[in-house]
Amino acid sequence: MSVENAPVVDVDEAAIPVEKKMYYRFESNDKKEFRVSELAIQQSETLNRLVEAMGYTSEDVENKPAIAIENIDGKTLKLVFQWCEHHKGEAIPVDDGSVPKIVEIPEFDAKLMDIDNGLLFKLIWAADYLNIVQLLNVSCKKVANMAQGKTPAQLRRVYLLPSDEEDEAAKRAAQEAQDPRAREVEEEFEERKRQGGNSFF
């Protein structure tokens, strides 16, 4: 995608009339390109460190290829950068130690996260990968809120949690996959026991 056609996320040009804003270009794993303001990038510790390390000038940004974010798709990245642009300049929250965490979901965030759970799942992964503390907090809060008023059986369905029996079966399957000989030895041992043998050896 060309620079001209790249989606630009929520930019309020009138807000900074004098200084020319610095932008960076990012590309998702499905080759969608985004131009994101330097201030918005500061919400992501990962991206902020990356651009600082690269030391790009405005010319570099235009002339060099967009920075690839290889494990996030365009649809998810668009939400991430919309969130970052909306919250640019806000302080990164510091964990004050309260548990349960006191997290309010602002109206903008609630609308942004009014998406299907598949996309919400990807958004949480992206917020974690890009280390966007507050986006991670609000998206985790949204998932936590799904538990409210649910019984254990309902929680199992909401969070797709395996039962003890399913966990046990999965564990056995994983062990067998890892060491098929172990299963053979076990079967042989059981067979010898049935035949009345006192010792396996």
């Binding site: 548990v99 349960p100 965490k101 997290v103 759970n117 919400l120 799942f121 949480i124 992964w125 974690d128 991670l136 907090n137 985790c140 809060k141 998932v143 936590a144 799904m146 309902q154 369905r157 909401v158 969070y159 797709l160 949690l161 395996p162």
Partner: peptide, 20 residues
């Protein structure tokens, strides 16, 4: 019912969700 696979998230994210 809306669902999300909790245990497929990274453990630190699961912790964040539980602590929320």
């Amino acid at each position: 019912m809306s669902t999300i696979p909790l245990l497929k998230l990274p453990i630190l994210v699961i912790t964040n969700i539980l602590e929320s």
